[in-house]
Amino acid sequence: MFECALIQGELFRKLIASVQDLVQDGNFMCDANGISLQGMDSSHVALVALALKKEGFVEYRCDRDVTLGINFANLAKMLKCMGAKDRLSIRAQDEGDSASFVFESEDSSRVSNFELKLMQIDQEQLGVPETQYKAVIRMPSSEFQRICKDLSAIGDTVSISVTKEAVKFSVGGDIGSGDMSLRQSESGDVDGDDSEKVMIELEEPVQQNFALRYLNNFTKATALSKTVTLSLGTDMPLVTEYKMDNLGSIRYYLAPKIDE
């Protein structure tokens, strides 16, 4: 038996919305520690990895490891029926072919029950090694979203270059070219909200090219976190991570574009 409950069901809806445009379906792997999911886009260029810790749930019970094969578009249809402040419970039997989703309003005056049919999904899993990245940038997620959206109107590839002082996003296209630089915030600024700052940890300067189409896709997760962390190395996939307070994180990996 697998059972979990979230006070803010809305968070789960936002999570599914952050995944469903990149991957159509995937396996929720549930074990005693939490829920994880990994999925690649159809062109095998981007990967999304979701890790939810049991501590983030108000109730969590997993007697045996369970794999829930889920079509995200179908799940999203059911989650649409959930109220913005509803509590969400998910239940599945060990060998069941469906999972139940229960939405309950704050005052318990409305309860909705949905059964989602599960799928057998045979998915390739990739081993993502723990790596020391050459540059790690933390910035406001809304700022990253705006940059990706605005630059994609000019070109389809962004060059991200990082130095100790700043991170620069450059783009070029038929109409011309441009760049936007964000400077590292002053470290002495104790009054400012940390989530508003740009923090750069640098081992050595890095420059890599990425397809904006995918980055724009990743920014669907902006609603989950005030900040985003970008980790870059040389000839390595970019990691774009959104952390949710105590619930866990959603990470996106994007293979670079290499100059021919």
């Binding site: 690649m40 062109s43 095998h44 260029v45 981007a46 990967l47 390739e124 899993q125 990739l126 081993g127 993502v128 090694p129 590839t157 090219n209 397809a211 390595m236 996939p237 990996y253 293979a255 670079p256 574009k257 290499i258 100059d259 021919e260």
Partner: peptide
């Protein structure tokens, strides 16, 4: 001109 790499170049299948 730049070429889009695939993730399998960097990560191995498990």
């Amino acid at each position: 001109n730049s070429m889009q790499m695939e993730l399998s170049t960097f990560f191995s299948k498990v």
